[in-house]
Simulated scan of single mutants.
Amino acid sequence: MTHPDGEPLEAELDYRFTLANERTFLAWMRTSLGLLAGGVAVHTLVQPFRAAGFRRALALSCIVLAVIVAIGAYGHWRRVGVAMRQGKPLPNTIMVPILSAGIAVVSVLAAVAVLLR
Rank of each mutant, 00 (worst) to 15 (best):
L45W: 08
E12S: 12
E12N: 07
G81L: 10
L58M: 11
R23F: 06
G87T: 01
L33K: 02
G81Q: 05
A113W: 05
V114D: 12
P91M: 12
M95H: 03
G38V: 02
P91T: 06
A41E: 04
H43A: 14
E7W: 07
D14Y: 12
G102Y: 01
V106M: 13
V114S: 09
V80M: 03
F49S: 15
P4I: 06
W77S: 09
A83W: 12
L13H: 01
D5H: 08
M84Y: 12
A41V: 00
V105Y: 03
D5S: 10
V67S: 06
S61M: 00
L115H: 04
G39I: 05
C62L: 11
T2W: 02
N21Q: 05
K88P: 02
D14K: 09
H43V: 00
G39S: 06
W28Y: 12
D5T: 12
V40I: 15
V64F: 15
V42W: 01
T31Q: 09
G53W: 11
P48C: 08
W77I: 02
V42R: 02
T44D: 15
A52I: 05
M84R: 15
W77A: 07
V69E: 10
T2H: 07
E12G: 03
L60R: 02
P48M: 06
A52W: 04
R117V: 00
L116F: 09
T2N: 04
L58H: 08
L19F: 07
V42G: 04
F54A: 08
V69M: 13
R85Y: 03
A27H: 10
F49C: 11
L45V: 04
T31I: 03
L36Q: 08
P48K: 11
G75A: 06
G6D: 05
L36S: 13
M29N: 00
P97L: 03
G102M: 05
E22F: 11
A104F: 07
L45Y: 09
L19D: 04
F54E: 10
C62G: 12
G75V: 01
L35I: 03
G38K: 10
E22P: 02
P89Q: 02
S32I: 02
R55I: 09
E22H: 09
V106T: 10
V46D: 15
I63C: 15
V42A: 09
K88H: 13
L116D: 10
R56W: 02
I94V: 14
T31W: 00
H43Y: 11
A57F: 02
G34D: 07
G81R: 06
G81A: 05
A110F: 15
L58R: 05
R85H: 10
I63M: 15
R16I: 08
M95Y: 00
I71G: 01
R23G: 01
I68C: 07
I63V: 14
V105A: 13
S32A: 14
L58Y: 04
R117W: 04
L19K: 03
R16E: 09
F17A: 08
V82Q: 09
W77E: 09
W28D: 02
G72S: 02
A52H: 07
A37C: 06
I68L: 15
G53V: 09
L90I: 12
A113P: 05
A111M: 11
A41P: 00
R79D: 15
A37I: 03
M1R: 02
I71D: 03
S32M: 04
N92R: 15
A113M: 05
I68W: 10
V108T: 13
I71C: 08
V64Y: 14
